[in-house]
Amino acid sequence: MRPQGAGCGDAPLPAARRREPVRPARRLRGGARRVRAELPLLHDAHHRLTPIQAARLGRALEPYDLFWLEDCTPAENPEALRLVRQHTTTPLAIGEVFNTVWDYQVLVREQLIDYVRSAVTHTGGITHLKRVLEFAAQYQIKSGMHGPTDISPVGMAAAMHLGLSLHNFGIQEYMKHGALTDSVFQQSFTFADGMLHPGDRPGLGVTLDADAAGGFPYQTAYLPFSRLRDGTVHDW
């Protein structure tokens, strides 16, 4: 029997966060009033809202002209997005949990979303994600490729180059990698003034330093998981 609090490789289990979806939604409406005049707003609900909660939030935020409302309901349930679409004109983004063009069939064909959020590394590489985005382009749906730091600089560069090839490019998510990652992956792309530039090296412009990588043995890590206030496990 594994000791309490231990996980794979005896690493600590992920931390738990307690939250109630409705309360952050109310706070978001207040925050939107204060910052919308200065910045475009994007909000990620991490699939936590019910269809009615998402529809209410999307409608309430319409005066603040969100760039998008992301993952407002579980992505696998197109019926939920149909209900949200019926009640709000706030743009919807979804897809970072999807892996193939088939996941998008109904969502794109019925124009239930406005932005495709898949990552190159999770969706069959450049060729397959390009297939998804070319399908989406027929319905005036744009790209918004996933780009967190748990995707390597190789995946980030691949997304950037794919975005440059699309006429339905929308926006590229970008989170700067840390100094340790940058010491292993030599990158030609740069970020300045809100813009990414691919650089002028051949290919994707990223080189792996295998010797440097050898200095960092694998360490088990987890994303946090969420519980409602009553302790129920909920979408992260």
Results as ranks from 00 to 15, higher is better:
M1F: 08
Q4C: 11
G5M: 02
G9L: 04
P12I: 05
A16T: 08
R17S: 08
E20Y: 09
V22L: 10
R23P: 04
P24R: 02
P24Y: 01
R29Y: 13
G30Y: 11
G30D: 12
G31D: 05
R33H: 15
R33A: 14
V35A: 02
L41E: 01
H46P: 01
H46I: 07
H46Y: 09
H47W: 06
L49S: 00
T50I: 06
T50S: 13
I52T: 02
A60P: 14
L61M: 09
Y64F: 14
F67L: 12
W68A: 10
L69N: 00
D71N: 13
D71R: 12
A75D: 11
E76P: 07
P78S: 02
P78E: 00
E79L: 10
E79F: 10
R82C: 01
L83M: 07
L83A: 04
R85N: 01
Q86C: 08
T88K: 03
A93Y: 08
I94Q: 03
N99F: 14
V101T: 15
V101C: 11
W102Y: 13
W102C: 00
Q105I: 08
R109G: 02
R109H: 06
Q111T: 03
L112P: 03
D114M: 09
A119K: 13
H122G: 15
H122S: 15
G125F: 04
I126T: 15
H128G: 13
V132I: 09
V132R: 07
L133Q: 09
F135W: 12
Q140R: 12
G144E: 13
H146M: 08
T149M: 00
D150K: 08
I151V: 07
S152E: 06
P153V: 13
P153E: 01
A157W: 00
L162K: 01
L164Q: 14
L164E: 05
G170T: 04
G170I: 03
I171W: 02
Q172I: 05
E173Q: 14
Y174P: 02
M175V: 15
H177V: 08
A179E: 15
L180T: 14
L180N: 13
D182G: 13
V184C: 14
T190F: 15
T190N: 09
T190I: 13
A192P: 01
D193L: 05
M195C: 12
P198S: 05
P198L: 02
P202L: 07
G205Y: 09
A210Q: 14
A212P: 08
A213N: 09
G214N: 11
T220M: 00
A221V: 01
Y222D: 06
L228I: 02
L228K: 03
H234M: 15
D235V: 06
D235S: 13
